[in-house]
Write a protein that binds this DNA or RNA. Structure first.
Length: 287
DNA sequence: CGACTCCAATAGTAGCATCG
DNA sequence: CGATGCTACTATTGGAGTCG
């Protein structure tokens, strides 16, 4: 297949964003995008009418293979699994167009929901909602019947419904996080309790490599106890910044001049419902 | 230990209701 | 009318338990 420089520039961010949403991993997504382009160059077919759909098909199938084989691996993962954070505008860095659709769908909370879906459901949901393919095209991509594609989509939709249409407003969420930090630094427990939901859950992903809670922490008292515990132990050269991670405000923590962890949040009704701490060094980009 | 059965959960299909 | 999404039914799968 012939792919011009322009087409490559156009399709690369699209494919990356599809793969990243499917896999929750920046590294794996980048690999798969490269593989897909290499595979496409080697194709002899010159009469492919819809290159975009064809590339998505190749990519989707690779992702599905990887998900199906990774499913067993994920079972051996120590503790909660969080998606690999996407810091700064990695996508924008090589994307001038409007191709990056629906940034809300890139929040850590959303990606974590995706984990509850089967590989097929993920693929269909993304192709439909984010990339606006028709059911006929989707059926062609995943090699199933059109009716079935619709069914898979509606099932997927049901599972993710709880996160649909909610306030993923960056400014509002940032102000909540700022107040949270402020209250935390002054150890103002009553304000903290106003900012977090009564069924708050904290997922801390250390990947079995660094110390992290091996199961989710539930309830405000337990979560605050854990956070207070962390703050007591931090070294002097600790500092943090509030940055855009997955297009949502997050707290990025540095220790000894290196990136130590990232705190992401799922905020609903102006309260923190879920906290995701990513400490697994394999998921933190090196600066 | 492998082979077998059974059951529950999931995937797939047919057909119908709704809406523009 | 076609596109969509739903319900209700059927088929398939995978895992737990059991037996030889």
């Amino acid at each position: 297949m012939q792919i011009s420089k322009e087409e490559y520039q156009l399709f690369k961010p699209l494919l990356f964003s599809l793969a990243y949403r499917m896999l929750g991993s920046v590294v794996e997504a980048e690999d798969i995008v490269q593989e897909t382009f290499l595979g496409a160059y080697q194709l002899n077919e010159e009469n492919i009418k819809n290159k975009k759909a064809y590339l998505c098909k190749m990519l989707t199938n690779r992702c599905l293979d990887m998900l199906k084989s990774a499913r067993s691996r994920r079972e051996y993962y120590v503790g909660p699994w969080n998606p690999e954070p996407l810091i700064l505008d990695k996508l924008h860095a090589f994307d001038p167009s409007e191709m990056i659709i629906q940034k809300e769908g890139l929040s850590i909370a959303y990606l974590r929901i995706m984990e509850h879906l089967t590989p097929d459901e993920r693929a269909v949901l993304l192709l439909r909602e984010v990339f606006a393919f028709s059911y006929v095209e989707i059926a062609n991509i995943i090699e199933k019947r059109e009716e079935n594609a619709r069914k898979i989509f509606s099932r997927a939709k049901q599972k993710v419904s709880r996160i649909e249409g909610e306030s993923l407003n960056y400014k509002i969420n940032k102000s909540i996080i700022d107040r949270f930090i402020q209250a935390f630094q002054t150890q103002n427990t009553s304000v903290l309790l106003e900012l977090i939901s009564e069924n708050v859950t904290l997922y801390s992903d250390g990947g079995g490599i660094v110390n992290a809670a091996t199961r989710p922490i539930v309830s405000p008292s337990n979560v605050l106890a854990l956070l207070y515990g962390i703050i007591k132990k931090v070294p002097k050269d600790f500092y943090f910044e509030v940055k855009s991670v997955n297009y949502q405000p997050a707290i990025v923590i540095f220790m000894n001049e290196t990136l130590h962890s990232i705190f992401s949040f799922y905020i609903y009704n102006e309260r923190i419902n879920e906290i995701y701490i990513t400490m697994n060094p394999e998921k933190l980009p090196i600066h």
